[in-house]
Structures are given as structure tokens and as C-alpha cells.
Computed example of a mutant assay.
Amino acid sequence: MKQQTFAFTRSENLKQKPEASTLEFGKVFTDHMFTMDYSAETGWHDPQIVPYAPLELDPAAMCFHYGQTVFEGLKAYVTEKGKVLLFRPDKNFERLNRSNDRLCIPRLDEDLALEALRQLISVEKEWIPTAEGTSLYIRPFIISTEPFLGVAASVSYKFIIILSPVGAYYKEGINPVSIAVENDYVRAVKGGTGDAKTGGNYAASLKAQEVAAASGFSQVLWLDGLEKKYVEEVGSMNVFFKIDGEIVTPQLNGSILQGVTRDSVLHLLNHWGYPVTERRIAIAEVVQAQKEGRLEEVFGTGTAAIISPVGKLSYGGETYEINNGVTGEVAKRIYDTITGIQKGELEDTFGWTVEVK
């Protein structure tokens, strides 16, 4: 695609950048954002970088009423030599278009979206924190904007990219978290929207998370929505189990999100020669392996935390300690490798990083 230069309106009121030590996740936003509109007559049009500001939407805009929205999440990093790197952004925009298809939202030109992200980050480079565990979180999203109280696909949309300097997603960092198996609520079912990154999936997960948090757990382990027998995800992350030296992750089945970090982990494990399998795995199998001393590691994978080891698992009234409550060797190796590639500290032999000039 021929490089396109987008219209740019510089903010007249630049914000004070926060100290890295004060950063939480997703609470501070940069000075500018990217926006682009869609209409049935014109298609996607008017791409521009503008000052970060509230949106003006009609109260009848369909995003408020029928949940026709999709989003993505990825990060930018600064290397020791000052290079700005993105990690597999093409995969995020590919997935955004898969979500668009499921939600009846017009597809984006992925090359254009990536170029828009490059130019926005180039404008906001100084916002990228450099302290250990920090990064610039990137949130592309699309909302339906047609003012219409009828259940149908909207005829107008807005695509936006906003940026947020962040600290660690979980305060535990790479240290193990405690999780509870969810038996009452379900995250998604095959044929639903579980494999799309849409807001309704996350809204539906909040009650279970609230209940788990009240009992002292960091996250919930989701079971399938039909039999409540097979493991699907942990919180908003994909999940991996190391049993008898084999690493198992639930196979994609239409209700599990196709994680970019999940895909990266599978690539690394295969590259390193670990036996790794994508298949259905029952919670009963996991618990039995733990009782027999064969469950060696459990960890979640996702953009926000990269790797989140599991130290405690609650199921059926019992709480089990995984790997003596410490981070496992495989989880630590994956975390160190992915973060090393992301920050330019390790050679990127997979061609995963994209430099922003």
C-alpha cells in the first residue's frame, strides 16, 4: 500500500506526563487519537489524528443499545537504543476484521489501520514509558453510530485508536495468581461471540469476576457453556497446563478467543521442542493430574499481562496449590522471551516486531 499521510490537528493543551512509578493500567491517556468514519454511501473516510477528547454521539446511537462494537489491544515499547517497537500488530488487525465480520461491521483496510497506528505513535513517542514492566497500551476500537432504535446492523461507524501509558495489568506481575473455577456463569458458547473481541463478552464476565474477587481470587477459570465440563479460558486470557511434561491448551472451538499471545506461545513451545497439544481438556483431568502430582504448571496468556502464572486453583470446594505456589520454569521462560523480543533485548528470529520510525 502506498504510504498515506493523515490529516493532523495538534492539541493546544498538552498534558503533563505521569511518573512511571504512578502508572496503573488504562487510566491515563495521551494527547492525541486517530479517528475514521464510515457511512454506507462513502465507506471508510476522513482518517485523521486529532486531540484526545470526548466524543459527541446521538443518544440513540446503536452502540449504546445493541452492543455492536469491537476492539483490540496491543502495546508499544522503547528499546535501550531508543527504537519504538510494536509486537505483531498485523495479527491484531487481522483479528479485528474477524470480529468485524461476526458483528456485521464493515471490514477495515488492515494496511491503512497499521499505518494509522504508526503515525499516531510517531506523534506520541514521548508518552511511551521505559521503566521495567511498563509500556504504551494501544486500544483500537469500532462503534456503531447510527441513531436508530431498531435491531439491525448500523449504517455508520467510527474507528478510533487511543493510547495509554501503563504499568503491570496484575499487581502480582509475573508472580502466581489464585483462580476459581466458575460453575454458575458461562463466558460464551459455540455459535455465539466468544471468538470475537466485543464488549458484550466482557460485560457478561463481570458478575463471575465480582463473586470470585469477593472470595479472594484474582480470576475465574471458565468452563464450556454446554456441559460445564471442559476448560476454555482464564479470566480474559487463554490458558495453558503442563501435565507430565506435555503442555496442553484448549483448542479453538468458536467460543475461545484466538489470542495473539497464545499463538506466539505455541510458536515458541514448538520451536523449543516441547510436546504441546491443542485439544479439549476437562477440569476433572486437571484436578486429577494435580492430585496425582502430575500437574506441573498452569498459566494464562494475553496482551495485557503477557504471562500470568496460576498458584492456586479452587474447584468443588477444594483449593489446590499449583507448583508449590511459585512461577514455573516454562512460564518464566516464555515471559522472559516474549518481553525480551518486545523490548528489543532478544533477537527477533520470528519477524514479530515492527519498528515505528
Rank of each mutant, 00 (worst) to 15 (best):
S205R: 11
I334W: 02
A131H: 07
L136C: 14
R88C: 02
S308T: 15
G351P: 01
N324L: 03
A214Q: 14
I161Y: 11
A168Y: 07
G199N: 03
M36G: 04
A20G: 14
Q251S: 13
K332L: 10
L346S: 14
E345Y: 10
G351Q: 03
D184N: 13
G191F: 12
I142Y: 04
S154M: 01
D46K: 04
E12Q: 14
S135D: 06
V177Y: 02
K158R: 15
A289T: 04
A213H: 15
E80L: 07
V260E: 04
D263C: 01
P106T: 11
S135K: 07
H267I: 09
V189M: 10
L221F: 10
T349H: 14
G150H: 05
E41R: 15
P129W: 13
R98G: 01
Y315G: 01
T277E: 09
N270F: 00
Y230N: 11
C63E: 02
Q209D: 13
A196W: 14
L108C: 06
S122V: 00
Q209G: 12
E94N: 06
F148T: 00
A214H: 07
Q290N: 10
F240D: 05
R262E: 03
G150E: 13
E110S: 11
A61E: 09
V186W: 00
R107V: 10
I105K: 04
T5S: 09
V211Y: 03
I143N: 03
E329N: 07
I256M: 09
I338V: 05
K75D: 13
I105R: 05
P250N: 02
V181G: 01
E12I: 06
Q68C: 13
Q119I: 04
V231S: 11
T79R: 01
E347W: 00
Y170L: 15
F241A: 10
T134V: 08
D31I: 06
A76I: 10
R294L: 06
T353K: 07
T69P: 03
G328R: 08
A305Y: 02
E292I: 09
E115R: 15
T353Q: 09
K291V: 08
N92Y: 05
S314G: 00
T130C: 15
G200W: 12
G150Y: 05
E12G: 11
D111A: 09
M36C: 09
Y335C: 02
V189E: 07
Y170E: 03
E126S: 14
E233Y: 08
Y335E: 02
E110G: 13
